[in-house]
Amino acid sequence: GSAIGLSGRDALVGADNDEVDAEGQGAAYLFAGLSAPANLCAECEQSYADFEAQFLARQSEMAAGNVDDPLEVSEAQRIVHGDGSADDAFGHGVAASDDGNTILVGAFGTNLFQGAAYVFERQDDGTFEEVAKLMASDGKAGDSFAGYVALDGDIAVISAHRQDAGPNASLVNTGAAYVFERTDAGEWVETAKIQPPGLEPFALMSGSGGIAVQGDTVVIGAYNQPCEGVPFNQTAHEISYDYYSEYNP
């Protein structure tokens, strides 16, 4: 799997080179864990206890030599995007909401590596349907938008690790990240662009999966940004959600 997201006992696994209708189009696979509830609910605590009991019993059987295979999980759904094409790399970045009802999947190869992210929501029958396609408002070919994604509640943070910065885009591949929020009407709207000052060329901010969001805090890695004069050192920017405007005047 090129990327993994976890929500409760459900696992979301990206397969960005999966040949759906064309080579390199990509897909994501949702796996439902043993005894996993479909949604978080009042019975979850008991369901988890049941799962733990079955897991421990299975481990005991394996130790005694009675079984030699791990816990089984079942594939629940293969997830693909509606406008997929060759080399989209859909599934390179995946994320799932804590309640298990929203999935975010990146396809950084779309439109000559301009990139796009796709939102899927759980329907009444338990399957997921595509409800939105997210793209950077100032995106261009080569930005690799949505190579990596993060999701927390109604906030999505999406990488663009090969975006340029500076006058006339003179600082190449510094990287950036974009914040999208889900409105009360269910629409996803871009609300901020994060590209802190001081990034060096080829900093690749938000690259290699270095992006996370929780509440009002976003942490973004910039693994090629020099740190104390030493190149190729892992660095990170922690940005309070209340101060996005500092980086996006």
Rank of each mutant, 00 (worst) to 15 (best):
D98T: 09
V179D: 07
G26A: 06
A76N: 05
E52W: 15
A96H: 05
E19Y: 05
L6A: 05
Q114F: 09
Q25R: 03
G186D: 02
T217N: 12
A176Y: 13
E246N: 13
P197W: 09
L34H: 14
F202I: 00
Y247G: 06
E43S: 08
I239H: 13
A95W: 09
E190D: 07
T102I: 03
Y29P: 06
D154K: 09
N66P: 06
D87H: 13
Q54S: 11
F31Y: 15
R78I: 04
D124S: 08
A222F: 05
Q195I: 02
A177D: 06
L171P: 06
G210W: 12
F202Y: 15
V218T: 12
D242C: 00
L34R: 12
G198W: 09
C44K: 15
I4C: 01
V20R: 07
N173I: 01
E228R: 15
Q77L: 00
G1K: 08
G106F: 02
F90Q: 06
F90K: 03
A176D: 09
Y223D: 06
N248L: 03
Y178F: 13
N17G: 07
Y29C: 00
G147S: 04
A107E: 05
G91N: 09
E200C: 03
A136S: 05
L104F: 12
A3D: 07
S144N: 11
P226T: 06
L199Q: 11
S206Q: 12
D154V: 01
Y29D: 01
Y178R: 01
Y178H: 11
G153D: 06
D99Q: 01
N224H: 13
A192K: 12
S47G: 14
G1D: 07
N168F: 05
F232P: 00
A203S: 15
Q54K: 14
R182M: 01
D143M: 02
Q59E: 14
E200I: 00
D216Q: 13
H81S: 04
L6F: 01
S245Q: 11
E45D: 14
N111V: 08
A185F: 13
P249S: 14
L40W: 14
F145D: 01
A177P: 08
S170I: 04
L6W: 12
P37A: 03
P37L: 03
N224V: 01
E228Y: 14
A42P: 07
A132K: 14
Y241N: 07
G93S: 04
P201W: 07
Y178M: 00
A15G: 12
S144D: 15
E130P: 10
C41M: 10
V172W: 03
D184F: 14
A150N: 11
Y118M: 00
E187H: 15
S240I: 08
Y244V: 05
Q214A: 10
A96N: 02
A107I: 07
G26C: 07
N224M: 03
G24Y: 11
M135K: 15
G153H: 10
Y118Q: 02
V230N: 14
A117C: 01
G209L: 02
Q25Y: 10
R182L: 04
P249V: 13
V131Q: 08
G65N: 03
A96T: 02
A15N: 07
S240M: 13
S97P: 01
Q195D: 02
L6K: 11
E61G: 02
G139H: 02
G8R: 06
G210N: 10
P196H: 11
V119T: 05
A27C: 11
